[in-house]
Each structure stands twice: as structure tokens, then as C-alpha cells.
Amino acid sequence: MSYHDSHAHGHEGHGAHHGAHHVTPTVVYHAIFGALLCLTVITVWIAQFDFGAANTAIAMLVATVKASLVALFFMHLLHDDRLNMVTFGFGLLFVALFFLFPLLDIASRSYVDPITDNDSVRKAAQQQALQDAHAQKYEDKLSQLSRLNQKGFITATAGEGEAPAASAVDPAAAPAAPAVAPTP
């Protein structure tokens, strides 16, 4: 460990050959400590007043100023290798993403009363109506097919001279019903 011996004593680490050893003047630490105490008093004082939702925003703003002072000066991020700041910054970015999606979920919800909610009743009715309409369409198709069958318009297409089976219009086989001759 002789490579440092050439350092002049009392240089307080200013540069020489490595920026990682930056020494913050004591007065800066005292000033930051004073600022942190003041901000603590301010945040407690402001909390007495009711600004509604703004209370949380103000408290978070003050907390973020305090946290920034601690990170930049006490934790040396300001004068440190920029890589450390980038590393921590990426961490905070992912915290922001983590907050974003639950908040989007909450912001897009509406209150639903499971007992008295008329909305759910309305939705159930809509669903039922859709099902009914679908069933009605199916019924219509079936009756049309059976009418055609009665008139003898339906013939087997894949048959080899066999007589058209009446079961061709069996409701259960309706989706696979043979080709229907155009209505005259």
C-alpha cells in the first residue's frame, strides 16, 4: 500500500487520481442535517391543515426533497461514480412501474355494491336477451328448413341415389345440414 504515500496530507481527497474519494466539507453535512430537521418540522406543521388529497401530495413532496438530500449528500451520489446514481435510478424507475399498474387498476374501477347494484341486474338481463335472440334465430332457421323439407326441396348431395333422409333436418344435426336449395 505504498502507492498512496505520495499524496500530500490534508488535500482532503480532492481528485488526485480518483474521484471516488471525494470528501465533502463538514459544513455541508451540518447544513443538510439542519435542512432535514427544518423539513421534518414543516411536514408535521402542514399536516395540521386539511387540504384534502393535497395533504398526501405535499407530504410526499417534502419526503422526496428530504430523501434526495440524504441520497445526494449523505450517500455521496452527487460526487460519486455516476454509475451508482444510474443503478439506483433504474431501481426507482421499476418502483414507479410497480406503482403504475395497480394505480391504473384502482383509478379505472367504479364502486359496485354486490347487493343493491342495479347494474349487475341490467347486465344479466342483457345477457339473457342476447341468448334469447340467438335461440330465436336458431328456431327460425329450423322451421324454415322443415318447411322446405315438407315441400321436397331438400335433396341429399353426397348420397349415391339414396333417398333424402328426413333426419337431414334433425335439429341436432342442423349445423351440418346439407345444402339448401334456393327458395323459389
Partner: peptide
């Protein structure tokens, strides 16, 4: 110097995982 800066990058990476650990509870809070 390399030893010192490696240790520092290491602790910062660890602090990021700590922040993420706490952020789960902070999201729950919100």
C-alpha cells in the same frame, strides 16, 4: 480503488433490491 468502487456498486445494487422489497408494501399501502 477497483476494490472500493466494486464494493460500492455492489451495495447500491443491494439497496435497489431493498427498495423494491419495501415498494411491495408501499403499493399495498396505496
Amino acid at each position: 480503488d477497483q476494490e472500493a468502487s466494486s464494493a460500492k456498486l455492489g451495495i447500491w445494487l443491494f439497496l435497489v433490491t431493498e427498495v423494491l422489497l419495501f415498494s411491495g408494501l408501499f403499493v399495498g399501502y396505496t
